[in-house]
């Protein structure tokens, strides 16, 4: 029951977080920006609109929006926010990476199916950065985890905050920026197809299918923010909420202050995330530091 509440709350809040971050970024750039509730209006409008797909696209392109949304919802259901026993049965630290890979696999295949060069380019970059982010994510979550308690996600809540957890958080923050398509890796608000990564995958989608994919992106983003917040001290739901707000503001500040990295500098960013995460895990196992 609590699990359903958790899932519904995160899915309902996800567009709001997106709207707030977009509004804040506009304000920091000196623009008034759209209303905070604008994502809800956009989703409502997209739901009513007809879907379009390229001529000859396979059934994979038709089922991709549903599957990707399902992956995002399963992802947030697995986070130990309100019901850790129930959420631990859904996925653990290891399975989380494979789950996200399922969504990425289907979405990039659908992009290649669309016959568009832009979508193919986006798919190529998405799988590249996804592959580099995966070891960083796994090592960071293990580094923030008590040794010898298996790989349950609720194990993240058992560990007191310390140097190892701090390193793990730093690594995971870089992964979060990558996976939520934020500057300096990607830019959600770009209108220039050649620079798109996540948006590029959605280029050939329209109508309610695009809406489902956008909602999936918002839900996955909030899921990553919540997971990042779990690596910081304080694990009650209101503390998590406060940390989510802090991290979201920090990411928006980074987006305002930094420029996008050159494509081939992103691997260095992710490699440093892997090193930070491996250091955190090494510290946890060998140093015995909390």
């Amino acid at each position: 029951m609590m699990l359903v509440l958790q899932v519904v709350a995160i899915v309902m809040l996800a567009p709001l977080v997106q709207g707030a971050m977009r509004r804040l970024r506009a304000r920091l750039a000196g623009r008034p920006g759209p209303a905070i509730v604008q994502p809800y209006r956009d989703l409502g409008k997209l739901w009513r609109k007809e879907a379009l797909l390229p001529v000859g696209a396979s059934p994979l392109a038709t089922l991709a929006p549903g599957l990707v949304l399902g992956v995002a919802v399963t992802f947030v259901a697995a986070l130990p926010v309100l019901a850790s026993t129930a959420s631990d049965a859904i996925a653990d630290i290891v399975a989380l990476g494979f789950l996200l890979a399922l969504g990425r696999f289907v979405l990039t295949l659908a992009a290649l199916d669309s016959r568009s060069g832009f979508a193919g380019m986006a798919a190529s970059r998405e799988v590249t950065f996804g592959a580099l982010a995966e070891p960083a994510m796994l090592l960071a979550l293990l580094g923030a985890h008590a040794v010898g308690t298996g790989t349950r996600l609720s194990g993240l809540l058992l560990v007191p905050f310390g140097p190892a957890a701090l390193l793990a958080f730093a690594a995971f923050a870089l992964v979060t920026i990558t996976e939520t398509a934020r500057i300096p890796v990607d830019n959600q608000e770009t209108h220039y197809e050649l620079t798109m990564i996540h948006e590029g995958l959605l280029l050939e989608y329209g109508g309610w299918q695009l809406g489902a994919l956008q909602l999936a992106g918002y839900v996955k983003q909030l899921g990553f923010l919540v997971l990042a917040a779990m690596l910081l001290p304080g694990h009650a739901w209101w503390e998590l909420l406060a940390w989510v707000a802090v991290i979201a503001i920090a990411i928006t500040l980074v987006e305002t202050l930094l420029a996008k990295l050159r494509l081939f500098e992103v691997p260095q960013l992710l490699a440093s995330a892997v090193i930070l995460a491996a250091a955190s895990l090494g510290l946890r196992v060998l140093g015995g530091l909390g």
């Binding site: 379009l52 038709t62 991709a64 399902g70 050939e204």
Partner: peptide, 30 residues
Amino acid sequence: MPATLALLPFAFALVALGIAARRGIRRVPT
């Protein structure tokens, strides 16, 4: 775990196929 992990994604995929069949999808050039 494999079943619970994949339950929602594949259920949602089926729902997406169902909605597509009911509402129709217009085919356009890329």
